[in-house]
Computed example of a mutant assay.
Amino acid sequence: MSTTDDFRARAHELIADLDAATSEMMKLISEHQLSGPEWERVSQWQHEAYERWMTYLNERSYPGPGDNNASR
C-alpha cells in the first residue's frame, strides 16, 4: 500500500469516528439532553475524535501534492 493509500485509510477512520461522535452529540441535542453522564461521555468522545483528526492533519507525515509514494 502506498503512503497516499495509508493516509486515505487512516483519514477515513478518523473522519468516520468524528462523524459518529458528532452525530451522537447532535442526537442528544435534539433530545434536549445537554447534561448528565451520557452528554459527558459523548462530549468527551467528540472532543477527542476532533483532537485526533487535527493532530493527524498537522503531523504532515502524509504525502503532499504531487507525491505518490514518498512520505515527508
Rank of each mutant, 00 (worst) to 15 (best):
M26W: 06
R10S: 06
R72C: 01
R60L: 11
A11L: 14
I29K: 10
S30N: 12
N68Q: 15
R10Q: 09
E51M: 11
N58Y: 05
D67G: 01
M54E: 13
L14F: 02
Y56M: 06
Y50R: 15
W45L: 11
M54P: 00
G36L: 08
P65L: 10
M1E: 14
Q44C: 07
E59S: 13
Y62T: 02
D6L: 11
T4M: 13
L14H: 06
S71M: 07
L34Q: 05
E59N: 13
E38N: 08
S43E: 11
Y50S: 11
W39P: 11
T55A: 10
V42N: 00
A70G: 03
S43P: 06
Y56R: 04
L57V: 04
L18R: 09
P37N: 12
E31K: 14
D5L: 02
Q46M: 12
R52S: 00
Y56T: 04
I15M: 11
A16I: 01
T4Q: 15
R60W: 09
Q44P: 02
F7C: 02
E48T: 02
M1I: 13
A9K: 13
A49F: 06
S2A: 07
A70M: 09
A16G: 00
N68L: 09
L18G: 01
R41Q: 01
E51H: 09
D5C: 03
E48R: 04
G66Y: 08
L34T: 11
Q44D: 10
N68M: 13
S30A: 08
Q33R: 14
D17E: 15
G64I: 03
S23M: 10
P37K: 02
S61E: 05
E51P: 02
P63E: 03
P63V: 14
R41Y: 00
M25L: 12
Y62C: 03
E31M: 10
W53E: 06
T22Y: 03
N69H: 08
R10I: 13
M1V: 12
R72T: 05
S43R: 03
S30W: 07
N58I: 01
W45A: 11
E13V: 06
Q46I: 00
E13G: 01
V42C: 08
W39I: 01
H12K: 15
L34A: 11
Q33F: 02
S23R: 14
N68S: 05
A49S: 15
R72H: 06
T3N: 04
D5V: 03
S2R: 04
E38Q: 11
I15N: 02
R10N: 07
T22M: 05
H12L: 12
G36Q: 10
M26K: 15
M54V: 12
N58A: 07
D67Y: 04
E59Y: 07
A16D: 15
H32C: 04
L57H: 07
S35V: 03
L18F: 13
E51V: 12
S30R: 15
I15L: 08
F7M: 02
E13R: 09
S35M: 12
